[in-house]
Design a protein around this nucleic acid. Sequence first.
DNA 1: CACTTTATTCAGACGTGACTGAACGTCGCG
DNA 2: CGCGACGTTCAGTCACGTCTGAATAAAGTG
Lengths: 152, 152
Amino acid sequence: MTTAADLDALRTDFIEKVGLIAQNEGLPRIAGRVFGLLVFDGDIVAFGDLAERLQVSRGSISSATRTLEDRGLIKRVGKPGQRQDFFRLAENPYENMLNTVAAGLDRARCEIADTLEQIPGDETGIRDRIGSYARLYDAMSAAVTRSVKDLK
Amino acid sequence: MTTAADLDALRTDFIEKVGLIAQNEGLPRIAGRVFGLLVFDGDIVAFGDLAERLQVSRGSISSATRTLEDRGLIKRVGKPGQRQDFFRLAENPYENMLNTVAAGLDRARCEIADTLEQIPGDETGIRDRIGSYARLYDAMSAAVTRSVKDLK
DNA sequence: CACTTTATTCAGACGTGACTGAACGTCGCG
DNA sequence: CGCGACGTTCAGTCACGTCTGAATAAAGTG
C-alpha cells in the first residue's frame, strides 16, 4: 500500500508541470507552481506555507502571488485572528485566464490594424497582405472570447 | 510630397512591431522581423538581402528562416541560375500558425489529462479541480481549431 | 582544379528576466 | 514600548536564450 506516497509524487509532479506550462505562457515558473499547488491542494494556504512547501524564498512568493492576484487567478484572504495572508483559487480563474489571453491578442490586433490604417489606399498588395495578417488576430481573439462560454 | 518616405517609415515600424509580437509568442525577434518583412514586401527575397535589409548576421538569418520554415510560415524557393536561397510567404501561413498554437495547447492538455487519469477515483476534490483546469485547455484548443475556418 | 559565393554550425558575448536574501516598514501582542 | 512575525522591495547573482562572427562545408564558375 503506497497510495499515499504515490499521491504525493503525483502532486509534486503536477505542480512542476504547471510551473513549466506557466513558463511557456510567459509567466514566472514559481507563479505557475503556486497556482498548481492551490489547484491540487484546494485548501486555503498561508503565505509562509507556500514558501516552505515550494522551497523558495518569501520574496519570490510575494511577487508570484501578486502576479497571480493581478490576473485574477488567486485570491488573497484574511483569516480572523491570523496575521498571515492566505490564498485560495479565485472563483473563476480560468475565465480570467482566457480574458488575459484575449487582451494580449487584442493588443497585437490593434497594432497591426493601426499600421493597416496608415497604408495608402492604392497600395493594394501591401494592404491585402497586412489585412490577412490582421484577420488572424481577429479570428483568434474572437475564438478565445467565444471559448469563455465553453467553460460554463 | 513625402509619401514614399512615409511608407518606408511605416514599413520599418511594421517590421519592428512584428518582431516584438513574435517575441511575445516565444519566437526569436529576428524571426518575427523576417516574417514581417516578407508580409510587407510580398516579394520573393534573397537570403543575403534579408541579412542586409535587417542589418543582422547571416547566421541569424539562417536560424530564423529555418524556424519559420519549420512552422510553415515561409517557403524556401530556388531560382534558376541563382545560387542564393530565396524566401516567400507560405501559401497559408496563418493557418499553420494556428496549428502550431493548437499543438502547444494540446500538449498542455495532455499533460494535465495524464495527471488526472492517475488520481484515485475517491479523491473527488482533487479530481474536480484538476478536471476544471483540463477543461480550460479543452476549450482553448477547440476554439483555436475552430478559428482556422474563420480565416477562409 | 583553384576561386568565389553561399548556407550552416558552433563557441563565445551579450542582454534579459527570474530568483535570492537582506534590509525595511508594518502590525499586533505581551 | 519593545519584540517578533509578517509582507514587500531592491540590489545582486545566476541561468537562459539570442545574436554575432569565425570556421566549415557545399556548390557553382572560370
